[in-house]
Design a protein around this nucleic acid. Structure first.
Length: 512
RNA sequence: GCGGGUGUAGCUCAGUGGUAGAGCGUCACGUUGCCAACGUGAAUGUCGUGGGUUCAAGUCCCAUCACCCGCUCCA
């Protein structure tokens, strides 16, 4: 940072420190960095891969393996283009935008309207307002209304003669020669530009439009289009869910905030199919289940909130939606959306593909199109949230007893990339050999790490930065009675444990 | 996409047109028996990238890329 810049806030500094640690210790790197990187893309390094995999595994274990009403799928990222036409993505995932050249505000071109008085084909008066309904013009301010009425009266004869007229249209449909102005400041607006949020791609070597499709912008549609196949092949009955973890791609206008908003990201989604009428109850069930998941993995309750959308906030297909939000250093951000999508998706696909996607309940002899509850979580966002939540700067005494700053990642053991590190206290008297043997036995059962370089205090601190919950040290006493010390990451306390029982001890301590 | 800021060693950052720097980290050897120890030595740079001005550019100019902040957007 240049010295003439305003000092960054503590939370900004905290985020910078987290990003710096992530890169330094091999959690996350900028994508294709040696070529200058690529906007909105990040790579996971050795520790980051383990962390993110642990997040995904924790999700898969508790959402799929530990339940008898959820089955998994793993769909292709490339799907028939008609999927995206039926789901509405092709139409709705492209937003035309306009920018104000004066105040630099940006608007959706389908949310700004212009109203003109046109005389002899020339606009003599104009007004801009936000909204997508011409009726919005009725709500304009009194002073604007006055000038409008005044001019309209002045041109009354022209109106009567049909030479003058009112024109109200979206800013994206303004005719040639008519001003487009900012509804906020009155400045000149740019032409409407299309922002396509889906990545186009071509299936087959010839780039003709017939083979054009998109990288999927969400994994959910893969689940809906496999609804029949899963139903027919797995003997599962409603209510049940289909789960999927996979990559999705969105050409975000502004990737921002480290791995929070990226153009390529991984989702962990469930579509839970239930009978209409039971959807509210299942919706509440899933909000509870997902809440418990985050808290059980150690996320600090004060940093998580569950925000239920107001009715006017809901997407057109949704009957209810709760966002799981995390308090990142850069502000509250959405980790997951739990939505009641009604029967919107299955109906849309049934209509588009011509197949019956309804369900017949053998017990009640009823046929219905299931309602869908969708807990849709971001794997990268959750991983980032767990990383931010674990990040701590505290103090540890040095060898003289003076407090020194310490950086430690207090991961839940389940999420820690490395579960245990094994050290010889010094590199002599057979300690490296003994420690090496313990390491070899541990690594078959858990992610373990061996280090014999430098002072042991430094090795402890290194493991603190990686978030390793326990460090095992072989010392002189080990050679006497075959016990080792186990050092706790958070409390920095030690206890002696028989080397023989170290695996059992660690498993119990970590609840694994 | 707009505006502002920043890109120099693995990290954090100095660097005033004239030989590329510091601290930390890394590696080696020695010392070291429990929390970022000490000593000695070593490696590390197309100064984001590409052009231009100049006898001479990390430094000035243009372009471009990336990241950060604000706007905007966010199924």
């Amino acid at each position: 940072m240049a010295k003439d810049n305003a000092p960054s806030s503590p939370s900004q500094q905290r985020m910078e420190n987290i990003v710096s640690l992530a890169k330094r210790r091999g959690f996350v790197f900028p994508s294709s960095e040696i070529y200058g990187g690529l906007n909105g893309c990040w790579d996971y390094g050795p520790l980051g891969v383990e962390l993110k995999r642990n997040v995904k595994d924790a999700w898969y274990e508790s959402m799929v393996r530990h339940r008898d009403d959820i089955v998994p799928v793993d769909c292709a990222i490339l799907m028939n283009r008609r999927v995206w036409q039926a789901s509405g993505h092709e139409k709705c995932f492209t937003d035309p935008m306009v920018d104000c050249r004066e105040c630099k505000r940006r608007f959706r071109a389908d949310k700004v309207r212009m109203h003109y008085l046109v005389v002899d084909g020339k606009p003599v008066w104009h007004h801009a307002y936000e909204g997508d309904d011409p009726a919005g013009f009725d709500d304009i301010s009194k002073s604007v209304r006055k000038s409008y009425d005044h001019l309209r009266n002045a041109h009354k004869a022209d109106f009567d003669a049909g030479k003058a007229t009112d024109l109200d249209c979206l800013v994206s449909q303004v005719p040639e020669g008519h001003a487009r102005i900012c509804p906020e400041c009155g400045g000149e607006l740019t032409e409407a530009r299309l922002f396509n949020l889906m990545f186009k791609t071509f299936v087959g070597p010839a780039e003709d439009s017939a083979a054009m499709t998109y990288l999927r912008p969400e994994t959910a549609q893969g689940i809906f289009v496999n609804f029949l196949s899963v139903l027919n092949s797995s003997r599962i009955k409603v209510p049940f869910g289909i789960a999927q973890i996979g990559k999705a791609f969105r050409n975000e206008i502004t990737p921002r905030n480290f791995t929070f908003r990226t153009r390529e990201f991984e989702q962990m989604e469930i579509e839970f199919f239930c009978k209409p009428g039971t959807d509210d109850q299942w919706y509440r069930h899933w909000v509870e289940v997902r809440k418990r998941w985050y808290l059980d993995l150690g996320m600090r309750p004060e940093n998580v909130r569950f925000r239920e959308h107001a009715p006017e906030e809901l997407a057109h297909y949704a009957r209810g939606c709760t966002d799981v939000e995390y308090k990142f250093p850069f502000g509250w951000g959405e980790l997951e959306g739990i939505a009641n999508r009604t029967d919107y998706d299955l109906r849309a696909h049934a209509e588009a593909c011509g197949k019956d996607l309804s369900y017949f309940d053998d017990e009640t002899k009823e046929r219905f199109v299931p309602f869908v509850i969708e807990p849709s979580a971001g794997a990268d966002r959750s991983t980032l949230a767990f990383l931010c939540d674990a990040y701590c700067e505290d103090e540890a005494p040095d060898e003289k007893g003076n407090p020194q700053p310490r950086t430690v990642l207090k991961f839940h053991p389940r999420l820690a990339p490395i579960k245990a590190a094994v050290f010889p206290l010094v590199r002599k008297d057979g300690m490296p050999e003994k420690a090496g043997a313990i390491y070899e036995s541990l690594r078959k059962r858990m992610a373990a790490f061996y280090d014999d370089k430098g002072a042991v205090g430094r090795r402890y601190r290194r493991q603190d930065e990686a978030g390793t919950p326990f460090c095992i040290t072989v010392d002189g006493q080990t050679m006497q009675d075959d016990t080792v010390t186990v050092r706790d990451r958070d409390a920095m306390t030690q206890q002696r444990v028989p080397a023989e029982g170290i695996l059992r001890f660690l498993s119990d301590a970590m609840g694994l």
